[in-house]
Every structure is written in structure tokens, then in C-alpha cells.
């Protein structure tokens, strides 16, 4: 079929073929090496960072450090108030962001009429996910602190971070819902299910793996956030714990902790790093290790959940 002599020389000459294969294999080798190099750079940086934190923070990494409040004496100073603060703030974040985010995601994906308004909202939500976190801090300062007068409280902080991760939760919820095969939906409708039933009995449960992953990615981002919390006035030095949520007498549950001032792990770290005394650098490194472990824990939960749901649901 090939008539052009130049083409014949390329396509049917064994030497040319061998050469061409050789040359392409060399390129392949080159790119494999390049890939390894990039991977190495990324991994080494991470390893060096973690090792550095571990080595410097090592003397303080014990239970006493975890259970002591901060103090002006670096030997005594611990992160009790910081990690309790982090956990409480994240708890509020979850309670606020998860129902709102999933609800908004369901509405936008399943109920909202598909028109220009929806497109507009969609673009804005995607953009919101990329807004610098300090902007959320300013918004929260104006709204939660000045207008609602919630003060520099755990509630304010939780809601601020909830706003921050809401776009991520909404977007992943929508993507997970969209990934459910159309046949499953039609199957549910075909036996007489309403839209509500189709969503809540099928679409939502089957997308839970993806949605949870989105939530956890959001949370692991929120745990490390510092700027918006400083903006709303988180204290950097706090030695007392908020009031316990469970009490000895009726009604046994108390929400006073929501109104407590607070600090969180990254702010505590920041506070220590910025001190002139060399000794506090160790505290900061140790707190960094704890923060890293916390984030890794959250992320492994995400990976585990994704794996579990993938395994149990196939279409």
C-alpha cells in the first residue's frame, strides 16, 4: 500500500526500525529517571521535615507535654489547652459544615433547576474553595464577632472553619452523587420510589464513601488553619480548659464550652516559635509532631473509609 520510497525506507527497513525503537526506549528511560528524581525530591523534603521536627521535639514528646497547659517555663509548658481547643473547634466545624454541605450538595445536584443561576452558583462555590483563608477570618470577624456578638469563642472559630471547608464538602458531595450510575436511579424510580426516596435510599448511601473523603480532606485542612483564627482573635496563651460538656448534675450536658476563649495547636506553635527564648523552639517542634500525627490520623481515616466503601459497593 505504501508507495512513497521515503516511507518504505522508514517503515520496512529493519535497521531503521531497530534504531527507532532504541531511540524511543532511551526517551522512556530518561522520563523514568526524571520521575524518580521528582519523587525523591518530594519524599526527601517530607522526610527531612518530619525527622527535623521529631529530633528537635523528642525531649518533650511525652505524656506530661500532652497534659500540661502552656507556661512561661519552657520545661513545664505543654499543649493541653491547644489540642483540646483544636478538637473542640473541629467538632463544631464538623457539626456545622457536614449537614450544611451535604444538604447544599444534594439540593444543587438533585433538585435545583438547571439554569444560568445554578451555573453562576456553581462557579462561585468552586471559586470560594480557592479564597485565601484569611478572607474567611475577616468575614467571620465582621459577622460572628461584631454582628452576632459571639466573641472570640470556640463557636465562632468552629463556624469560621466550617465556612472555610463548606465549598469542599459541597463540591465533593455533588461529584459523588453524580458518579452514581443513572441505571441505579432509574431502577429506584421504576418501582415507584419518589425522588426523595431515590436519593436517601440509594444515591446518598452509595456516595457516602466519596462524601466522607471530601469531609475529611476539609477537616484535615481545617486542623492546620491558623490565619483565620488569629483574625477572629484566638488567644495565643491560654492556661485553662473550657467548661466540660458533661456535668454531674441535671441536665448533665452543658454547652458553655462553646463560648469559651480558646487556642489551637498551630497557634500555640506559632506563639512558641515567635518567642525569643531558644528553649521554646523545642516545644514548638514537639507540638508540630503532634499536629502532624493528628493530620495523618485524619487522612488515614479518609483512606480507610474510601477503601471500605469502594469494596462494599460495586455496580
Amino acid at each position: 500500500m505504501v508507495r512513497n520510497p521515503k516511507l518504505i525506507a522508514v517503515l520496512h527497513n529493519p535497521i531503521a526500525i531497530a534504531e527507532s525503537i532504541q531511540q524511543r526506549k532511551r526517551w522512556e528511560q530518561f522520563f523514568i529517571l526524571l520521575g524518580w528524581f521528582s519523587l525523591l525530591v518530594a519524599l526527601l523534603t517530607l522526610v527531612v521535615l518530619v525527622a527535623d521536627l521529631l529530633i528537635r521535639g523528642w525531649p518533650l514528646l511525652n505524656l506530661k507535654f500532652l497534659l500540661s497547659p502552656p507556661s512561661s517555663d519552657p520545661e513545664e509548658a505543654g499543649i493541653l489547652t491547644a489540642w483540646v481547643g483544636s478538637l473542640l473547634v473541629i467538632l463544631v466545624t464538623i457539626v456545622v459544615a457536614v449537614p450544611l454541605g451535604i444538604g447544599a450538595g444534594i439540593y444543587l445536584e438533585e433538585y435545583a433547576p438547571k439554569n444560568w443561576l445554578l451555573d453562576f452558583i456553581e462557579i462561585n462555590i468552586t471559586n470560594l474553595a480557592g479564597v485565601p483563608s484569611i478572607i474567611y477570618g475577616l468575614l467571620a470577624l465582621g459577622f460572628f464577632v461584631y454582628i452576632l456578638k459571639w466573641g472570640e469563642s470556640i463557636l465562632t472559630a468552629g463556624c469560621t472553619l466550617a465556612l472555610l471547608i463548606l465549598p469542599v464538602v459541597i463540591v465533593t458531595t455533588r461529584e459523588s452523587l453524580r458518579a452514581i450510575p443513572v441505571g441505579i436511579r432509574e431502577g429506584a424510580y421504576s418501582v415507584g420510589a419518589s425522588r426523595w426516596q431515590t436519593i436517601f435510599d440509594h444515591v446518598l448511601p452509595y456516595s457516602m464513601g466519596g462524601i466522607l473523603t471530601g469531609i475529611i480532606v476539609g477537616i484535615s485542612r481545617a486542623i492546620g488553619e491558623t490565619a483565620p483564627l488569629i483574625t477572629i482573635g484566638a488567644l495565643t496563651f491560654i492556661t485553662f480548659l473550657p467548661e466540660a460538656p458533661i456535668k454531674g448534675e441535671f441536665p448533665y450536658i452543658s454547652f458553655n464550652w462553646l463560648w469559651s476563649p480558646f487556642t489551637v495547636l498551630p497557634i500555640q506553635m506559632f506563639n512558641w516559635v515567635s518567642r525569643p527564648q531558644e528553649a521554646f523552639q523545642i516545644n514548638s517542634a514537639a507540638a508540630g509532631v503532634v499536629l502532624l500525627v493528628l493530620t495523618l490520623l485524619v487522612n488515614s481515616t479518609a483512606i480507610y473509609l474510601r477503601y471500605r466503601f469502594r469494596k462494599s459497593i460495586k455496580f
Binding site: 441505579i184 431502577g187 460495586k314 455496580f315
Partner: peptide, 19 residues
């Protein structure tokens, strides 16, 4: 439509059992 689908069932081209 729900009332209709309660009286008229459907089997699809590709089997689509719920997971």
C-alpha cells in the same frame, strides 16, 4: 408519575440491581 410507576414496572437493557 409515581402512581404510574406503581402500576407499570420496568426491566432495563443493562441489569441494574441495587448494591
Amino acid at each position: 408519575p409515581i402512581e404510574v410507576r406503581m402500576q407499570i414496572g420496568m426491566v432495563f437493557q443493562k441489569p441494574n440491581p441495587f448494591p
